[in-house]
Design a protein around this nucleic acid. Structure first.
Lengths: 222, 222
DNA sequence: GTCTATACTGGGATAGAC
DNA sequence: GTCTATCCCAGTATAGAC
């Protein structure tokens, strides 16, 4: 195999190793050498491919965007987040993206947070990641629907809820205690809520709130 | 002034300086020397009072608990989180605590997050900080009220929403762009939502969801 | 108790051989 | 391109004078 291919292979190995390390140790705790040794490469080789850890993270983000772009092209009919099925669908999609890209998503979260409260990085991330929600909420508003508040704020609140639970609950190992039904006490003492339960709960909470659907009936009636 | 008083004074200065630095730079970015120089003390003096930055943070937490303990002794009549006034009251109290102790609260947040996803620290924090919500939700459940899901999960979701928005939105400077009415673009590019707006929005969202109160009428009718 | 000065360490980044 | 070896700095923590 030629040089170019070898280089690409090394870069891929570094990326893969980084994802594993980020998931296990967290982005902030992961050292460059952790990545290189996990990838079976020399420390110096890292800089042949990435300028820094942050640079690597951006590369992973680009990869993720490339893959997951088609997931979110919801160009269906008029959206209505107050439709139980549609809201659930949106939340499930968001949750799935977080699950599928947990290392990157959580690393971005850690990175934004490490920038400090005054930097506004977290707010940028929060609003940036919730443009879909925000736009759909604006649609609702324009159709005369009364929202709980400013679409930007409501969308950010929803996103904050999601990211926080994703960071705290999603299992570190890609597919281990996730879709199981038993809340296993392993994995750092965190409970292993099944994906469906989390999504159902959030959908119900965000749609009808703590008061419940009232006269309208349950969330998933049929 | 005697030695003991001088020592206490230095310790207080270090604590105060730490709070300022945590707010400005973020907990993770704050170095020991940042604190000592901000306090006008020598670097070495720090260790006379605290074993580490983490130790200092715990001391600040203890101080905070001492002050804010009376805020949360809500021993009134039977609680009902589905009562608009009570829910709003609870959220307002939580928001106020975050505002009053922003440096400490956000530092704890950063600290828990830096421990990495696998540590479960964030989940512990999330559940620990929402015991009040959780208990009240359990009360509701025992009274036959149907909740959106497991009380622990719902409480954590509420708490996640709150902490995230608190971290992202609360102003760095104790009282500057907070209760103003104009969303100033200063302060790191973050909007300055008035406290009341945030609390109202969250109360409305959490009580009736995106669908709104329906037949029940608005959240604050009178 | 507080200071100044310094030892020590982890980890980022580079130099140069292969 | 990848390796080994090393430099170098930031930051923690300590030693010892005052």
């Amino acid at each position: 195999m030629e040089r170019k291919a070898r280089a690409a292979q090394t870069e891929a190995a570094l990326k893969a190793a980084a994802q594993r390390q980020f998931a296990e140790r967290g982005y902030l705790n992961t050292k460059i050498t952790d990545i290189t040794t996990a990838a079976g490469r020399a420390a110096g080789s890292f800089y042949q491919h990435f300028a820094s850890k942050e640079d690597l993270l951006q590369a992973l983000l680009a990869d993720m965007h490339g893959q997951a772009s088609q997931v979110f092209d919801d160009d269906g009919p008029a959206h209505d987040l107050t439709d139980p099925a549609q809201l659930r669908q949106h939340l499930a999609a968001a949750w799935q993206v977080m699950r599928d890209n947990r290392p990157v998503v959580t690393a971005l979260f850690e990175s934004a947070l490490a920038a400090g409260p005054a930097s506004g990085e977290l707010w940028k991330r929060l609003t940036g990641d919730t443009v879909v929600f925000r736009d759909h909420l604006r649609d609702l508003q324009e159709q005369g629907h009364a929202l709980p508040g400013d679409p930007v704020l409501v969308a950010a609140a929803m996103g904050g809820m999601l990211s926080m639970l994703g960071y705290a609950l999603l299992p570190v190992t890609p597919g281990a205690p996730g879709p199981t039904d038993a809340p296993s006490a392993a994995d750092g003492g965190r409970p292993g809520y099944p994906d469906a339960q989390v999504v159902d709960t959030l959908a119900s909470l965000l749609l009808y709130g703590l008061a419940g659907p009232g006269e309208r009936g349950a969330v998933s009636p049929g």
